[in-house]
Nucleic acid binder design. Structure first.
Lengths: 231, 231
DNA sequence: GCGAACCTTGACCAACTGGTCAAGTTTTGT
DNA sequence: ACAAAACTTGACCAGTTGGTCAAGGTTCGC
């Protein structure tokens, strides 16, 4: 019963990696990719707005412009679709930390990192919110990822920070808390944007808010952890 | 049809304010208070773990040790119960900002505020998560509160900060961003605790983590915004 | 050209959920 | 003591939702 020739299920898991531009691809593959992309985009929007439980596959399908049965053909279950969305988000989330290397200058590296994080927050607030909801719920889907891949990356980057400290380039701080608070400060402008807007009497944040946030956070962090030759 | 003598509905809205210890109170009132408290506590736990949509009134009732119908008798609808829980949380959330006055010394006031926020985060992580979820969802239930009560408080406290700046007690910073980032940094230790634990190879955060967080945040903020006579 | 694989979709369904209700029990005021 | 008000609760229900399915269309490999 499982060995049938049908091919539903995990389809778009592949769309998560960088394997874009395959060979010309027949019409079939083209349509498949277009549909998967449409569904993933719709799912991101709906999951961000209503949360996993609040979202319905009917909403997502409608937003993607496809029948609900079609969505289930591509992704199987709501949960599988949610996982596919999360995978894309995790890749996005982790990208900025890459240019955080031994050689880099603390002031520059931190400023760049904060700038990238704020940019992520500004351009992909929905992604940020889905990630946040997942964490608040206890990370049922990504706990494994957090305690392995992410943990490893953090440890690696922590070593960079400790080197900076040893070299007297910054004051003595616990690297993990530095990372955690940078994530928190930047992401708050996506996740809790309504609150920040509301207390300013605005309906939504604008580019100026993000620019000011970036400046404020950068200045406070650089000065706060004693980066030499900053602020 | 509405003028019946029954008395279901908004019951516990009152439990939110500080009107504890009423006169001896008959058995009736006693039971009512006990039940409302049990339901609110159960609701807080369940809403925090599953979110508004993921939570069911049956779960909450079971956790409270009461039949579901009884829960609906006291609070009417799931949404009304949720609002009651939120009201309690808002009061908790806002309390720490109170001792933020003109006369206070910046270093002391900020350190105290951060300490209280971290304490809230440590002792009431569920409350923090519910509040966070509500904001991520766009604050459908509390937008009004945010743009009036909270906004007013923030403006009032912003004046205090601007006074400090004018008096040369701290560097020039935008008060709103200062508050927002303090909220973000402290709350992240409740809302995203799984993540912080995971990257450290732990199952959960312990008191030491909160202590370290408090120290780190306090040090970075005080130094970062140039509080005279600090770090 | 043709059969097999793949895709599309309206109709359908079982499970769950918030909420109701009526019948009964307990407490309260007088 | 007794009636009115308040509380309790098992049974019930209508609406919603994730997911299935069968029948029909389209594309692909050869």
């Amino acid at each position: 019963m499982e060995g049938s020739s049908l091919r539903p299920g995990q389809g778009a898991a592949r769309a998560a990696n960088g394997a874009r531009r395959r060979p010309p691809a027949g019409r079939r593959a083209e349509v498949r990719e277009a549909n998967e992309t449409a569904i993933l985009a719709a799912a991101e929007a709906v999951f961000a707005e209503y949360g996993f439980h609040g979202a319905t596959t009917a909403m997502i399908a409608e937003r993607a412009g496809l029948p609900k049965a079609n969505l289930h053909y591509y992704f199987g279950t709501k949960e599988a679709l949610y996982k596919a969305v999360l995978e894309n988000i995790l890749a996005l989330w982790l990208a900025p930390v890459r240019n955080f290397t031994d050689e880099s200058d603390p002031a520059q590296a931190l400023a760049d990192y904060i700038a990238l994080k704020i940019e992520y927050t500004r351009t992909r607030p929905q992604a940020s919110r889905i990630f946040a909801s997942e964490l608040i719920a206890g990370a049922p889907q990504i706990l494994d990822y957090l305690s392995h891949e992410l943990r490893q990356v953090v440890e690696e980057k922590s070593r960079v920070v400790r080197r900076w400290i040893a070299d007297g380039k910054i004051g003595p701080v616990e690297p993990v808390h530095l990372f955690v608070t940078i994530w928190a400060m930047t992401q708050t402008y996506a996740d809790f944007a309504v609150q920040i807007a509301a207390i300013q009497g605005k309906e939504a944040l604008d580019d100026g808010d993000f620019e000011a946030a970036k400046r404020f956070i950068t200045a406070m962090v650089l000065k706060g952890i004693g980066v030499k030759g900053a602020g």
